[in-house]
């Protein structure tokens, strides 16, 4: 293991969904950060990135939450989270403040040091430092990868997860049709326009199962909960996991929406 104390101090942005639905995703992220030589810390004063308010047009609440998040992550060299959508929201913070606001500069500065996990590992840490550990891992399954919208189009995350994944022994990546098309989650969209959302996730479910993959991987729990929920409802056998679980070798927990035989209790 690299010397932990010598690496950068990284604040983990847990994200609401990892916090509430899948702590194993946040634990996997911590493990990956520590393996990369970082000192991972979890600021207590974080809650949500504020995206529900931002996308509902509530500017004041968005600004309040942005200030809270900026304060909570003050002083960390990097801010890293397991979601392109939530980290993408952090990148929108400068738009929330007028340039004269004292938080504007701090928002810009937070934007420059916050990264989605696969992008942080690949673009900041670099493959040279990670390859050795990733190659010791085994995941003997055919997988397919869903590109979540914010990560892909806002943060430019496309090759990073695939490059990392291909270091893991046994992984066979089979691309699905329309991997870049939205799954229909869209935050509150999926409950505001459930029928349209259903059509979109039905298409996605079909594209996923057409690949014959054992597992669909992605980088955002919102999309993964949506896709896993649809796959399960349709009785399909495909499992769904966040990519960090595979990269951290933490795949002993049941996949998303799978029956729990008690393993997760240990968390």
């Amino acid at each position: 293991m690299p010397n932990i104390s010598s690496g950068p101090r990284v604040g983990l942005f847990v994200t609401c969904l990892a916090d509430m639905f899948r702590p194993s995703v946040a634990f996997s992220t911590v493990k990956l950060l520590e393996q990369a030589g970082c000192k991972a810390e979890v600021p207590e004063r974080q809650t949500c990135c504020g995206q529900p308010a931002f996308n509902s047009g509530d500017r004041k609440t968005t600004a309040d939450i942005a200030r809270q998040t900026i304060d909570a992550f003050d002083g960390y060299e990097y801010v890293v989270g397991p979601s392109g959508s939530c980290i993408g929201m952090l990148h929108y913070y400068p738009e929330v403040f007028a340039p004269s606001d004292s938080y504007y500069q701090r928002a810009l500065e937070l934007k420059n040091r916050s990264f989605e996990i696969t992008s942080f590992l690949f673009d900041v840490i670099g493959m040279d430092s990670l390859q050795e550990q990733l190659r010791q891992l085994q995941f003997n399954h055919k997988v397919t990868y869903h590109d979540s919208c914010s990560g892909l189009r806002q943060l430019g995350i496309k090759q990073q997860p695939r490059q990392l994944l291909q270091q893991v022994q046994g992984v066979e990546l089979e691309e699905m049709e329309e991997a870049e098309t939205c799954c229909g989650f869209g935050g509150t969209f999926c409950v505001k326009y459930p029928e349209i959302s259903n059509r979109m996730v039905s298409n996605k479910s079909e594209f996923i199962s057409n690949t014959g993959a054992h597992t669909v991987l992605g980088g955002d729990l919102g999309c993964l909960l949506n896709m896993a929920g649809k796959l399960k409802r349709e009785g399909k056998q495909v499992e769904a996991r966040h990519i960090v679980e595979v990269l951290a070798g933490m795949t002993d927990t049941p996949a998303i929406g799978e029956a729990d035989y008690g393993l997760a209790q240990q968390l």
């Binding site: 509430m20 639905f21 929920g229 209790q265």
Partner: peptide, 11 residues
């Protein structure tokens, strides 16, 4: 339209 995957337990 779809199942809701259950949380793992603790936050």
């Amino acid at each position: 339209w779809r199942d809701m995957p259950a949380p793992q337990g603790k936050t």
